[in-house]
Amino acid sequence: MNDTEGNVAEASPNDFPIVGSISNLGQPFRFSNVEPLCGVSVEPSRDGHVKVCTRLATTSDDPMFHKMASSFTSVVNHLSQQAGMAISLDRANTVLMVMKADDTAELWIDTAAVVLRCSLTRSVTAGMAIFAHDIADITAMTFPCVDIQSSDRVWCMFRQDWGFGLAFDFNTDGNLDLESFNTALGSLYRQLKYRHLYQTMANRAVFESLVGLGWFPFVEIIAKEFKGLADHCSAGFDVSVIEASILESFDESRMQKMMERWALKPHFANRGIILQVAVDAFNKREPIAVIKILLTEIEGVLADAYRAANDGKSAKLKDLLIFAIASAEQKSGDSDTLFFSAAFARYLTSHTFANFDPTLQTGTASSRHAVGHGAATAESYTMTRALQAILTLDQLAFYT
């Protein structure tokens, strides 16, 4: 069961389901006299010496995954035979093994409640349906109804789409860091669920092509429109057709939802009147007004957020960009989440705040410096550029 709040309520399987309650679907297989697992060898043994991995998180893209998965499956088969059980992992989706300090173990096969810790693009109340496009990021995967103690050893293998994730912590110091284990599982889930995004970000040619066109996996379009953009760039197709389709999807209703999101941020809210003018201009298909307003307000929003976090001190643009990325990583807990904070830093410096050569008239309406100095060509003030400016500002609402 997925729950963005991660609240756990006591409930028995026979209780009437109530919104927000979480319970396991069944009981685990229990084993006694289990020899503690200490790690996984990472190389062939040489003269009795071998390197052992005691903590790891990986996906089925790793060649070592299949050897480790087979090894863990053999462990389960051995335990089940000893206990006179017939257990198969062949069709399992989520397998969790918790090994206790008293040499007992619990094996959960598709029966433990699963919670994903998510950041959403909108506010929700208990009982509201959550759609894929509502998810801005996934930062952890937990088993809230399974009793996992600091003295336990754990390993988990799960299926997501067409891949698998595997994580284990054999807790050699007797003090399991459960939060790190949950975060590792969340990272694996995210990598598998959004594999196409990570592949795009890793493909330097495709990523640079997208940035050159002013696009980025902005949170607002990451679940719906971005894949089409990336596929077009990867294939070398003209993106103008899909850009037109994306523009059509940003109607007044969608723009209003973005405004509501901005209003929750103090450094956005105090610019509400100005931002509303820009959004109204977008709805009227007036790109010049949108770009002129927002490319200057982006820097102002960053400056306000910086002052709020640094006792009223000011900073230059370079430091504001560093601050924005650091804030995103602090909120998400990592640099490789769906916020893609490090990549967004490159986007801002090479696109939104790109320098230009006034003597060669290289300025376009995508650059805050060119727009601010009146050096952008008239034909570069397009609705696509206007939308990209809006999405850039919106991205910062998740970062700061």
Rank of each mutant, 00 (worst) to 15 (best):
D231G: 01
T73D: 15
A9E: 10
W262C: 05
R55W: 12
L393P: 01
T94P: 02
A11K: 04
Q256V: 04
S71T: 14
L197R: 10
A281F: 01
D336G: 02
A129D: 10
H373Q: 14
L396S: 01
R55L: 14
M97F: 15
S327L: 02
G374N: 06
G300K: 09
F356N: 07
Q160N: 13
D61C: 11
D90G: 08
S32F: 15
R346A: 07
S41I: 14
V279P: 01
F29A: 15
W155K: 09
L89K: 14
K318S: 12
F398P: 00
V206I: 12
S380T: 14
S335E: 10
N175R: 10
L294H: 01
I273T: 05
H78Y: 11
R307Q: 09
S245Y: 08
M128I: 07
M128C: 11
A235K: 14
G6V: 07
M99V: 06
S366Y: 04
Y399A: 09
T364S: 15
E208A: 07
H267Y: 08
Y189Q: 03
K284T: 06
N203L: 07
D311T: 10
W108I: 05
D304M: 14
V239R: 10
T94D: 05
S366E: 15
I138R: 03
D238Q: 05
I148V: 14
T142D: 09
R122A: 08
V239C: 15
Y189N: 00
R55M: 11
A140N: 09
L176T: 01
K316Y: 04
H196D: 09
M201N: 04
D90T: 12
M128T: 12
I291N: 01
H133P: 06
R153I: 00
Q199T: 14
I222A: 10
S180N: 11
C156E: 02
Q361I: 08
Q160C: 12
P144L: 02
P17N: 13
R385F: 01
Q276A: 08
L176Q: 08
E106K: 03
M97G: 04
R46S: 12
T4A: 15
S88E: 13
F339K: 12
N93Q: 12
L185S: 01
G374M: 06
A184N: 08
S327F: 00
A389C: 09
A315W: 05
T349M: 11
